[in-house]
């Protein structure tokens, strides 16, 4: 088991290197002149050259990449162009907030998805199953940015049930209850798409397991329906892990719309704002830490997968 995790960990390193390279190249192909925007209208050719050499931009690209990477690895993401502050604390704060939202949405999505998946697999022709199928179908096609808006309109603005935006109420001074209130609408919005996908996948996983021979074999040994179902659900866990891991990973990026609509101070909102300000170091760092979190998440899912399914630990 440890060897299996070690192997996965070793595979993550080249992927992370590749990720950093892609980000570096993306930033390099960006049209526009970051130096000019740093210097402002008062820049002279001399101050420009000085800044370029101070930032290492006059050196060859591979050298620049290595220099950038060596800073990044130790958590030095540079200085924000727009805010003139260190990028690292800004990005890590935002990542924390995004993880809170992602975790809440993931819990909702898994609960909903598994519930609907089981229902639609086992009670195929009931009204509830039909509703569940319809939900799964529509929710995967939903544009989150507008569902969020509708929730704001009806539940937040109209009915006044939940706060419209942000993470904490500045006047009440925060607290878990306040956070929870602010979390519900964005988490529900973000959970819609993954809930639909998990529901569909889990439905086919349940049907697949139920059609396997060992289910009949268990019945033939006189086990009760409950016990047979316990075996069956145990066997759906590997596919649930795979799907849920993939969907939680997608959430890490997909919440950007939700964060933008609900003004949730996460990575998505930070990157979005930095785009309008052309604040490259922040965009770079934001995408990088998201990708890092994503890779780590996949690693965790792989490890859990190995724990649940002895067949993959090889």
């Amino acid at each position: 088991m440890l060897g299996y995790i070690g192997k996965r960990l070793a595979m993550a390193i080249p992927i992370l290197l590749g990720v950093s390279l892609v980000i570096f190249i993306t930033i390099k192909i960006i049209p526009g002149d970051p130096i000019a925007s740093l210097l402002g209208p008062t820049g002279t050719p001399e101050s420009r050259a000085a800044l370029e050499s101070r930032m290492g931009l006059d050196r060859p690209l591979p050298v620049q990449y290595v220099a950038w990477l060596s800073h990044t690895v130790v958590g030095d993401f540079g200085t924000s162009i727009a805010r003139r502050t260190d990028v690292a604390p800004m990005v890590l704060d935002a990542l924390g907030n995004t993880l809170i939202l992602t975790a809440a949405a993931a819990v909702l999505a898994i609960v909903l998805g598994v519930g609907i998946g089981v229902l639609t697999a086992l009670r195929r022709n009931s009204l509830a199953a039909r509703l569940g199928n319809a939900f799964a179908l529509f929710s995967i096609s939903v544009p989150q940015y507008s569902v969020g808006l509708l929730l704001i309109i009806y539940l937040a603005a109209g009915a006044g049930l939940f706060p419209v935006s942000g993470m904490y109420n500045p006047s009440s001074g925060g607290g878990v209850v306040d956070l929870f209130n602010h979390l519900i609408l964005p988490a529900a919005t973000a959970a819609l798409v993954p809930a639909g996908i998990i529901a569909r996948m889990f439905r086919s996983a349940v049907l697949d397991v139920m059609s396997q021979d060992f289910i009949e074999a268990l019945h033939s040994r006189g086990l009760s329906r409950r016990r047979v179902m316990a075996h069956a659900f145990h066997n759906t866990v590997p596919s649930l892990l795979t799907v849920a891991g993939l969907q939680i990973g997608n959430l890490l990026g997909g919440v950007v719309f939700v964060e933008a609509v609900f003004a949730w101070p996460g990575i998505g909102l930070l990157v979005y704002q930095s785009i309008t300000q052309r604040d490259l170091p922040v965009i770079q760092a934001g995408v990088l830490v998201s990708a890092f979190a994503f890779v780590m998440l996949n690693l965790l899912v792989d490890a859990l997968h190995g724990l649940v399914d002895p067949r993959v630990r090889t």
Binding site: A217, L218, G222, N235
Partner: peptide, 19 residues
């Protein structure tokens, strides 16, 4: 089932819970 009448299915791989 299993107590007085027991079944040996065709495919032993399919007859066991893989997990």
């Amino acid at each position: 089932r299993g107590g007085q009448v027991a079944l040996i299915p065709q495919d032993p791989t399919g007859a066991l819970d893989p997990l």
